[in-house]
Design a protein around this nucleic acid. Structure first.
Length: 265
DNA sequence: CATTCATCCTGCTGGC
DNA sequence: TGCCAGCAGGATGAAT
């Protein structure tokens, strides 16, 4: 569900609401989502950081509360306590209430030391919206691999933040077949991919993310980018470029949508 | 080392 | 109407 754009929208919204506020109480509603309240009580939230789909509330002692929303996780900010369905963790803050809900329970929350945070950040691949995302670094992580390009995009260890929706959208807009092997990409295709990845992600952020099923913003509102999708979820519909029928195929055991005519390369 | 697949969860939808 | 297979925006660890 939440891919990079959705997590970034939430980060920006929460930054306004909870940065500089203090943690007054912690309530864990499901032991699968444990947070040690005695370690964080009274501490100030200094900043909110994101890498890929990972979100960190960095506290004043440089420990951080780490969130990964999995498929159905939500982070909701409210000025009063609300009985959200599937509530897992509630943080009472000096500025309001932050609720983590998760229907399918595939998300994660943890308190990490500064060292653990740095270690996790090292394991996550290049964030396409960070200064680390250069053509040189892109080439470095791509070279030598023989993966299908869709698997490459979905893996979080090389480039982070891309999930199933944006993988299809990025490959369509790059005119590359999702099963093409990374070592068979031409220099032009690599260049196109390098440029298209942040383009699509930024556009999605500008539209507040993609709501298809579960994703909502921190105030409960839906995103808008679902209206700008060109191929994802459009099996049998006409390709906006050539009119050919959009195909759905399982690749990497996930539904993948593409135009068999525009994406022959 | 690289790659694929089952697994963790719950709930909804569509076909029979 | 009821039932069940299949599907869903993710990631990991085990097997090959």
């Amino acid at each position: 569900m939440p891919e990079l754009p959705e997590v970034e929208v939430i980060r920006r919204e929460l930054k306004e609401k909870i940065e500089e506020s203090r943690i007054l109480f912690v309530r864990v509603e499901d032991s699968q989502f444990y947070l040690p309240s005695d370690m964080i009580l009274g501490k100030k939230i200094n900043k909110l950081e994101r890498k890929g789909k990972n979100l960190f509330l960095v506290l004043e002692d440089e420990s951080s509360i780490f969130f990964h929303l999995g498929m159905t996780g939500r982070l909701l900010f409210s000025s009063r306590e609300e009985p959200f369905p599937y509530l897992k963790v509630l943080l009472g803050l000096s500025s309001g209430f932050l609720s983590l809900t998760d229907q399918r329970k595939l998300g994660k929350v943890a308190l990490l030391t500064r060292e653990e945070t740095e270690e996790l950040l090292r394991q996550v691949g290049i964030d396409p919206l960070s200064p680390e995302y250069t053509e040189e670094n892109f080439e470095k992580v791509l070279s030598g691999r023989k993966m299908r390009v869709k698997d490459f995009l979905l893996s979080q260890r090389y480039i982070s933040g891309i999930g199933n929706i944006y993988a299809s959208e990025i490959l369509f807009r790059s005119s590359i077949h999702p099963e093409k092997r990374t070592n068979d990409l031409t220099p032009e295709e690599k260049k196109k991919l390098f440029i298209t990845i942040p383009q699509v992600l930024k556009e999605a952020i500008a539209h507040q993310g993609t709501t298809i099923r579960n994703y909502v913003r921190s105030g409960g509102e839906q995103g808008e980018f679902q209206n700008s999708l060109l191929v994802y979820g459009k099996e049998g519909e006409r390709c906006p470029c050539c009119g050919e029928k959009i195909v759905r195929k399982k690749i990497a055991s996930r539904s993948t949508y593409f135009c068999p005519r525009c994406q022959m390369g």
